[in-house]
Design a protein around this nucleic acid. Sequence first.
DNA 1: AAAACACATATTGTTCAACAATCTTTCCTG
DNA 2: CAGGAAAGATTGTTGAACAATATGTGTTTT
Lengths: 226, 226
Amino acid sequence: MSEIYTSIPLGDGSTHAHTSTWVASTLRQEIAEGRLLPGSKLSEQALSNALGVSRNTLREGFTLLDSDLIISRIPNRGVFVASPDAADIREIYAVRRTIEPAALAWGPKLDIDELSRIIGHARAAAETENIALMADANQQFHETIVRATGSAHLLELMSRVLAKMRLVFHAMSDAPDFHSHYVSRNGALVDLLNTGQRMEAADTLQVYLNTAEAELLEHYESSQPR
Amino acid sequence: MSEIYTSIPLGDGSTHAHTSTWVASTLRQEIAEGRLLPGSKLSEQALSNALGVSRNTLREGFTLLDSDLIISRIPNRGVFVASPDAADIREIYAVRRTIEPAALAWGPKLDIDELSRIIGHARAAAETENIALMADANQQFHETIVRATGSAHLLELMSRVLAKMRLVFHAMSDAPDFHSHYVSRNGALVDLLNTGQRMEAADTLQVYLNTAEAELLEHYESSQPR
DNA sequence: AAAACACATATTGTTCAACAATCTTTCCTG
DNA sequence: CAGGAAAGATTGTTGAACAATATGTGTTTT
């Protein structure tokens, strides 16, 4: 069990600009790429040893990550990699259902060409059945949508939410291939946008998000019987 | 200059559940109520003394506040109460223009009665020309709108944004009375909602937000000549 | 054998003191 | 008066220590 930590590459001897920031981004990456699975406990002593930083600095890193939604901190119990439940899935989609259609409908900086480009990559990934690439493209697609709002804070919230989405998929490793559905749906959105039907695109995206939420919830409930 | 800190009430001797959390919320309150003005430097030594906590714990509190947008942390320079500039105002309104109209148009938990109630309080405050109460009512009004999305994260982002809005007003203490305008505008919104015209309310709110942003920016530019 | 309790152990929460790294101020020199 | 070096102050980070809380173990009790 403690072997988990040995896989974490230590930082080189050089001094990092902000150690706590470096700690946070390192852990973020470990979690995003599935090397630290949902539910894992992040022991302070073990981690501070593995990363070569003091417990105090590690705790600052934890505090930074806490707002990232990907860890859950339980007082006097410790820090764990978040393992999203049904409520989290609903929360994620409540956020997305608000921000993304609004960005499509009213965002002042909508970049349809960039969206088309991403669709192209997604289609290529779909042909070779490369799920990881499709997931990346999907994430980029939705980040680009949010970028239309012109708000850095909304973009940040969106990447946090999408990071948590990845945890959902890591926790449901037996999930069917949702991503290939997304490719064609995203393509239909771009078609609507290309003909200037932004409001219709917003409505359609809402339908898509509702569908995706229902699909995920169904799979979660069935794979997580109580 | 150091007298600023003496005004901060110390915590009682009792142990706080999470000291860093307590530190953060204490500072948040001090800033929100204008006892710590934009631009003030928050010295680690002075503050840790005044609050009766160690520098380490204070730093954890800083890290918590950092995601609240109301402080700015400059590496090796220190922590300052944020003093919003034109870009911040634009960012605030980019967020609000996205979230709030979406909440009005599509939010599944829109509570029109609660909005009417808040309008009542705002009108009462307007009659007695109590600006603080009007500001409070305005904040509640817009938080209630966002609550319609059903998302705790969006609500949290909104309160952060509104907290930063308060800093804008603190920084422009010579600002004219914007709030009384808001009261009647919010009233018009509720009228639209009461007749079931949610989309029209969303559009109207967007116009209002654009107007308010322009007013604030104009006042900022003129009062902050370079 | 199962449940309940007490004790020992491990982990987290917080403080303190120290030092390195960086910024700020002062003062000296040209 | 400008430029720059030295002194001073502040932040960034560490390690050790201790209190508070949670976990685990073993014994007793029924």
